[in-house]
Amino acid sequence: MAKAYWIAHVDVHDPDGYKSYLAANAEVYAKYGARFLVRNGTHVVKEGASRARTVVLEFKDYATALACYESPEYAAAMAKRLPHSTADVMIVEGYDGPQPG
């Protein structure tokens, strides 16, 4: 079964206010088994546009990734993020097929 990922590009407008979101999301991510693969690392945009932060979270499967985002717990955490940031978030299923070569 393919893993799934949240890919988020985020601009934080109020870093102090954003801290309440970071504290709230930790418990939710633990409940759904999320694992950070990328968390605001150094990056360069080669094509198109992006935001200041990039975050990639890994989940065991697509259903779990969706369930986490749609959970009441994450809705409560997200309510703490929205006043302090702007984000583009996608949930994508990983690829389990053959690899080239």
Rank of each mutant, 00 (worst) to 15 (best):
M1V: 12
K3F: 08
K3E: 14
A4Q: 11
W6S: 07
I7E: 04
I7L: 15
I7P: 05
A8G: 13
A8H: 05
H9A: 08
V10T: 15
V10M: 06
V12W: 08
V12M: 08
V12H: 09
H13T: 12
D14L: 00
D14S: 02
D14K: 01
D14I: 01
P15Y: 03
D16T: 08
D16R: 09
G17Q: 06
Y18E: 04
Y18G: 03
Y18P: 02
S20N: 13
S20T: 14
Y21V: 03
A23Y: 00
N25V: 14
A26L: 09
E27G: 13
V28M: 02
Y29N: 14
Y29G: 14
K31I: 03
Y32T: 08
Y32M: 09
G33Q: 04
F36E: 01
F36D: 02
F36V: 00
L37V: 13
R39E: 04
N40D: 13
N40Q: 10
G41S: 11
G41C: 04
T42W: 03
H43F: 02
H43G: 02
V44D: 03
E47S: 03
E47W: 01
G48D: 02
G48N: 02
G48R: 02
T54Q: 05
V55K: 01
V56G: 06
L57H: 02
L57M: 15
E58V: 12
Y62G: 08
Y62P: 06
A63H: 12
A65V: 12
A65P: 12
L66K: 15
A67M: 05
A67Q: 07
A67R: 06
Y69M: 04
E70K: 15
S71E: 07
E73D: 15
A75K: 15
A76T: 14
A77Q: 09
A79T: 09
K80S: 05
P83G: 12
H84N: 15
S85W: 07
S85G: 11
S85R: 09
S85T: 12
T86G: 07
A87P: 00
A87S: 14
V89G: 02
V89E: 04
I91A: 10
E93L: 03
E93N: 06
Y95K: 08
D96K: 09
P98F: 05
Q99A: 13
P100L: 13
G101Y: 07
G101Q: 10
